[in-house]
Design a protein around this nucleic acid. Sequence first.
DNA 1: CAGATCGAAAAGATCTAACCTATTTGTATG
DNA 2: CATACAAATAGGTTAGATCTTTTCGATCTG
Lengths: 246, 246
Amino acid sequence: MRQVRGHEDIRLPLASGSRRIHGSVARDLGVAILSGRYTPGDVLPGEIEFSEQLKVSRTAYREAIRILSAKGLVESRPRTGTRVSQRSRWNLLDPDILAWTFESEPSETFIRDLFELRMIVEPAAAALAAERRSGLDLARMGHSLEEMGRHGLSTDDGRAADQAFHTAILEAARNGPLIALSSSIAAAVTWTTIFKHRRQSMPRDPMPDHRALYEAIVAGDPEAARRTMTELVRLALSDTELALRP
Amino acid sequence: MRQVRGHEDIRLPLASGSRRIHGSVARDLGVAILSGRYTPGDVLPGEIEFSEQLKVSRTAYREAIRILSAKGLVESRPRTGTRVSQRSRWNLLDPDILAWTFESEPSETFIRDLFELRMIVEPAAAALAAERRSGLDLARMGHSLEEMGRHGLSTDDGRAADQAFHTAILEAARNGPLIALSSSIAAAVTWTTIFKHRRQSMPRDPMPDHRALYEAIVAGDPEAARRTMTELVRLALSDTELALRP
DNA sequence: CAGATCGAAAAGATCTAACCTATTTGTATG
DNA sequence: CATACAAATAGGTTAGATCTTTTCGATCTG
């Protein structure tokens, strides 16, 4: 028999905007796990109990758990229930996981680790891009650079252009897995940029290093591209470190 | 865009083993997408139609789609249906996606790309590991190396030891995101190793380069570690290329 | 009697089915 | 040309049956 719904039952947005319910639940639980509210080994309440607590149906809850499980955050088995996986199984480079991490203040260590990864991957990608870039790649980089110069990094448009510039470089490297890393890294770049501007009103002008990098790729000089990209990331890191300890 | 007709033969009842139903469906669809049977832009049949074709309930099918969507393979919206995402949105470094890729013969290009990524990441990780390794890290590497020497790379135990050795190095680098890459790369290493041995009965002895790398990390010499790891990956690549064109 | 082996029970996830809701987009209408 | 409507499809709810795995006790064996 069906239960009639009263007017209180109207679902308030769970601080999650217009997302689908399973998506919001996945995000909320994901953020809770990533921020340490649930720690590896913790067993979540049973399906029925927890879905009632969250005021969603068991199906929606289960779909949320499927999402988290696909990203390595939880594992569920009959009888033992659903538990938070070990950190080493978390898919830290998954774009959603990165987004959720930056939703609550990420640890300083994590940001440093991300820059360390950029320092490894992006110079190498820039060198490959200098060797393999097509005319179309160069056009896209050039356009992004122009946009970036026009808007500056304190606007959304400017940051989007910056991200497009880095993405164009990684795509010019013509390496599938590297491009997959690109969306993650590009996103991380954007968030750390927001971080910088949140705390520091007028950071260094980023255009000279970006232009130097662009020139190196246009010239098809892998070593110059590697060098300038290394310098660019190093400068971004030092800006971010300034923002971290004001 | 092309409309795809479902096939009953997508779900192989026996090959699915003891996996959960939603897991098998996700895997089968994932493999179908990664192997090119469905291409980006294709629209899958409606939930009801497709779930009936696959002989599973709509709920199980939907959970499978949640998994694929969490990995970026598909996107679904009301009215337009579920469609295969653009390649650039695929999470190629997700461990499951890598596994599914290697389930049907992966392209030569993809294997090369993976080695290119190893060539970028692992030498850098080895250098960091040489600086940061603890006694425990060294003990684990040493033990894995010993196991590897005892079993050789043609046995499961030996490959597991090889994987453990690489994982230990990446973990010694003390960088979360890098460790997340590690599970992907380590898995890829294992599969390419299986590839090599599938086609080539007696490859080169891998122990000398592994020992040299280990010595460099023990000595705490980052540059030597970087050099020996580069050499190790280069040798592995040339072995694999031999196997690819016999 | 101590320990091993087998089987039943219980807990929890898994799966099914039927039904209702919400969103999107093409199209007809003003 | 804008707006309202209609259809299509994913999204969400509910109730209940089923399957797996662990636990625990009973029985068997050394």
